[in-house]
Each structure stands twice: as C-alpha cells, then as structure tokens.
Amino acid sequence: MENKIDQLVTEIKYTAKDFSSDIDVKWCPGCGDYSVLAQVQRTSPDFGELKENIVWVSGIGCSSRFPYYMSTYGFHSIHGRAAAVATGVKLANKKLQVWVATGDGDMLSIGGNHFIHACRKNVDLKILLFNNRIYGLTKGQYSPTSEKGKVTKSSPYGTVDFPFNAIKLADGAGATFIARSMDRDPKHMQEMITRAAKHKGLAFIEIYQNCPIFNDGAYFHLTEKETKPENVLVLEHGKPLVFGANKNKGIKLDGINPVIIDFNDGKHSINDCRVHDEFDDNPTRGFILARLSDLPGFPTPIGIFRQFTKPTYDGDYMKQIEHIKAEKGEGTYKKLMFSTSTWEVN
C-alpha cells in the first residue's frame, strides 16, 4: 500500500507551488511564520504522501492561520484544541498524514493537556510549535515560554513565572521524535520537517520564530551570523557536540552534568566531546541536552534531540479492531441485538 502511494507521488511530481493555496497570506511583514510556511511548502513534495491525504490542523493564534495557506485539507479549530482535533482525524482515517501548526500559547498554555496526552499516547501526529515567546494575536501579553522577568503589556513590572522548556516537556510526556529548529535557518528547518514527516509516531518540532511586532529579536543571539556560532549547538547524529566560531568548543558529559570544554586549553580535544546519538534509548542524555538552553553560558541546541520508535496509539488501536474482528467476525445487527437473554412473546 505504502509503496503504491510512493509510486503515485513519484509519478505526480509535486512542486512547492502545488501546496500553496490561493489565499493572501496575512501575517505581519517580517514575521517568522513566513519562513515556516515556505519550508513546509518546499518539503511537502518529499513527504511521500498524496496531497489529498495530508491534513493540517491548528488551534488559535497567529501560527494557527497556517492551514489556510496550504492547499491540502485543513482545519482551523479553536484555542488549544488542535492536538485533540488532529487525534480524531487520525483515528477516523489512519491513512491520513496529520500535521498540527500551533503556537506557544495555543499548545503549551490553553492546550497543554491535549499536548501531553497526545505525546503520551504517541499518536502519529507531526506537531510544529511556532514558539515566539509572546501572545501575538492578542497583541503582546507574556506566554508560557516567556523568560522570567519579561516586561510585556500584561506584565509591566516583569513576569514572575518560570517558562516551559518545550523540549523537556515533549520528551517527558512521551513524544518519540523531539527536535528544534529556527525560522532563520531554512535549510535546517527543511531537514527537520522532512525527517519528522518520515517518523511514525508523535513528532514534535519546536521552531524558534521571531515576532517582529511584539517580541522582536527574541532569538537574534541565536539566529544572527555574528552571535549564532557561539550560542547555537547543532545536534547531528554520530557527530561530536561542537560549537563556536572556530569550532573550538565542545560539550562533554561529566556524569550527568554537561561541561563546556575548550579545545585550545591544552587539556581537551574534540575526542572528549559527547558524540550525539539521536537514537539513544536512554532519555537521560537527551534530557541533559534539552536543559542546555536553560543553563547560563551554555549554547542552545537545535536538531533532533531524540527519536525512537514505539507502537503508535492509532496503529495499535486499529490492530486491536482487526484482531477482534478476526476473532469474533464482523459485527451484524443480529449479533448486536440478540447476544443477550431474549424471550419471545406470541
């Protein structure tokens, strides 16, 4: 079946344009969402899926307008409920490839419960979290990923709450593909999206996305060429954890503690670095990497933190149905109504 679809997809030869709807895109000029849209449209032909089998589901917020700009099936639902709606779509028809476009407020605040449970169940969904660390559509209140102390319209004296680390949350909740990318690194984002598309199970990509109106420059230290090399650690499977403008720094694990090492200090070399294993069975090291962005002085990782396979909720559910059908035979009206004590009145 899958081979047949692959063959059809190859024959059709989609281009990025085939995935663009005819609606004017209405995000603010300079918004990072444009980049996500462009990378999704560019990579969609490589998803190996027929266009009619792709569904984009979203909640509410700037990012949740996403489905309207795709020419696939799309559902712009209500605030926070995208993961739940998407779960229903997938369970109703397992052959659909279901994507979720969501934001930090939509998925981590009002929709937090649906998010963790979709992760826990490993529903075969691909979730793109557009994280701009602010509420944009409601014009500038702090979000669950805003850094502590942030001054916004609803926190004029600075926030007192601690932010979520979305990677830790997704991994802790049971997602089976956990990655991060950035709006200003299109090639990297394309790779993450393409690989998420191929993953069976809940794939989660946090995308650092700039809001030029209400939180401009939130990630410039990570995305701009002067500061990026010192502040970003690119995770690549099988490669040592190296960063820095001259590729002269690395991350070593001292037990469970990450340590920054300098290859020029005469004591360390690249061989001391932890070699990234994105298929690591043990979640501990992935979690250590997820913490780096919270630790002062440490670089922020992008790439795939961890991916592994386990049975999907939808897959096992359908298997159970097939199993019961094979065991009991297909349900009939007679079986439905008469498989209990009955009596006849003449």
Binding site: F75, A84, V85, G88, V89, K90, L91, A92
Partner: peptide
C-alpha cells in the same frame, strides 16, 4: 474536539 476531527 476529537469527535469533531473525526466528523471532518
């Protein structure tokens, strides 16, 4: 919400 997705 899941039921609405399934209805779709």
């Amino acid at each position: 919400a899941s039921a609405i997705g399934a209805a779709f």
